[in-house]
Design a protein around this nucleic acid. Sequence first.
DNA 1: CTGAAAGCGCTTACAG
DNA 2: CTGAAAGCGCTTACAG
Lengths: 344, 344
Amino acid sequence: MKKIIGSRPRGATLADVGLAANVSPMTVSKVLRKTGRISEETQERVLEAAVKLGYVPNQLAGSLGSATSNIVCILIPSASDSVYSEILSSISRTLRPLELRTFVGESNFDPEIEYEQVRSFLSIRPAGLILSGGVQRLAKTDDILEKHGADTVQIWDGDRQTATANIGPSHEMAGRMMAEHFVELGLKNVAYIGSELSKDLCAARRAEAFEHTARQHGLKFTAITSESAPRQAIGGTLLTERMLEDQSDIEGVHYLNDAMAIGGIRAMYQRGLVAADHMQVTGFNGTSLATSVRTRLTTIDMSYTHIGEAAANAVISLAAGQPVSAVQVEDCKFVQGNTSGKRN
Amino acid sequence: MKKIIGSRPRGATLADVGLAANVSPMTVSKVLRKTGRISEETQERVLEAAVKLGYVPNQLAGSLGSATSNIVCILIPSASDSVYSEILSSISRTLRPLELRTFVGESNFDPEIEYEQVRSFLSIRPAGLILSGGVQRLAKTDDILEKHGADTVQIWDGDRQTATANIGPSHEMAGRMMAEHFVELGLKNVAYIGSELSKDLCAARRAEAFEHTARQHGLKFTAITSESAPRQAIGGTLLTERMLEDQSDIEGVHYLNDAMAIGGIRAMYQRGLVAADHMQVTGFNGTSLATSVRTRLTTIDMSYTHIGEAAANAVISLAAGQPVSAVQVEDCKFVQGNTSGKRN
DNA sequence: CTGAAAGCGCTTACAG
DNA sequence: CTGAAAGCGCTTACAG
């Protein structure tokens, strides 16, 4: 039924443009999509009318009619985490020239929100779906994905295959690298500090590999973790203070991420410079270079741009029905800073 | 025409669920949307069938049919800038309980990309539209917005009315505050360092107000700006090095943002500690607390959460046809750190 | 309490 | 080179 109240201007339709250009809607459609042969003269008339009316095709109708869409949906755990926002930017940049748009959602590491977001995504029948790995996934999420025959690309977790294509670093290797670094420095007593490991499976895997490797080499290991401390500098400060109170002989600490490491170093300085100067500190993410004054954190870095491009390309391949490799492991780069190794 | 090739499972439709539950599609629609009276018994049967088939309503069709959508589109200049990603998170959080989803785009401060993104947004006939202020807007962008009768909410620029509702801090006041801070400290010779001011009108307005106020009080003023230096720490380092080479008697520098200020301080330390200890440094954004070790930047902070909530609420009001205030100026908070004021 | 009809604005597959 | 017909999967507004 027609709605009678013309409350707000609703945007011109194909029919409106056709009327203005004195052709059928079908012809307008063809001109605008550059399909079929239409005379120069008609084309000009149509284009002119479209511009004059500010015509913007209704993609809701377009996608429904053609059963295809140009939207790629992306779900990340946290929009305020620079890791994900950099990957995101890279994905959008790669997709833009192909006229593919991105639709971004945030799960806050909550499996129930992830499920709702996935439903939301499926409800607009997207051209592609990118999720983040290393989070708890509900069975009903997998179920609904399968029933819709949706191929998914997963970023961040390069250790497991949990989607059609997985792209990310090996977190196991990252954790191992940091433990080996401490071993090489001759440390005997090390700690790991992190938060919300039960939600972030990738971070948990790094922590495990770090612990495992450290113990394997006979080092003493302590974990100071919390399920509620913020994964920002302030959380690192709090947990480090707790550690410094309880343990006096720890020589090196590996943190969940760079922000927490910076916060940890701050706590060490506040308890007398001795702590920070004698303690070996490492982070993860490689964002530290951009943020501190005299501290250059020893950390692990990788190319977020590259991860984003790989994810975008996987989506494009899948949409074209081409095969993709199941797991693409991204390189991790060890970055030697001035917070470790200068031990004397 | 029906497409014959059943290439991939396409997701169940209302009709499929109706078939499985032995009712008409219409009845399924009513049960799922909880409208109209349907017997308990029928409801159960329908719900069961919907779950079994993994039914997810096709919103493309739904929105087309009802001429309403539950998507709010948001355009920000940069996804990797924490200011915008924090506002974004806050908007999503406020909208989620109302079943409104967010669709995010990035313009990179490019007016042409802004135009394309706005077109993209309009093509899905969103329930609301949030843009960012303080960027150059093309006439055709305003034109198309008007022709679609789209009300827009604008974040970040609290000095101008350029949309139905504007929400943000007064950048003019922020710039003035920082100049007054230097005046109170008794400085005679100050500088401003920033980048890409021609694209970022809000930053330009802060710079202008800073310069104007400084000169008004008889201070000597120098601007060291670039249109290409990154707005990150590295850019601050580069421009500060340039300044230190050319000018030897500058006593205080106000930076475009905190990241550049941190980078600037790094440059000062590298040229001999003298510079950093004797130089007054201020930033803008209030993100510094989270990122540095011993440096607590003097800066200006505000509640990004609050800006996000206000923007979300404005969208909700507009969608409900309720009036909104044209300009909502957000409070700026002066944060005294240890990079200024300890002058001796 | 339930459903058949008409329409949303496009597209696909034809016909002229 | 141009267009009339049928359909995409929903919803609105009625009728029973």
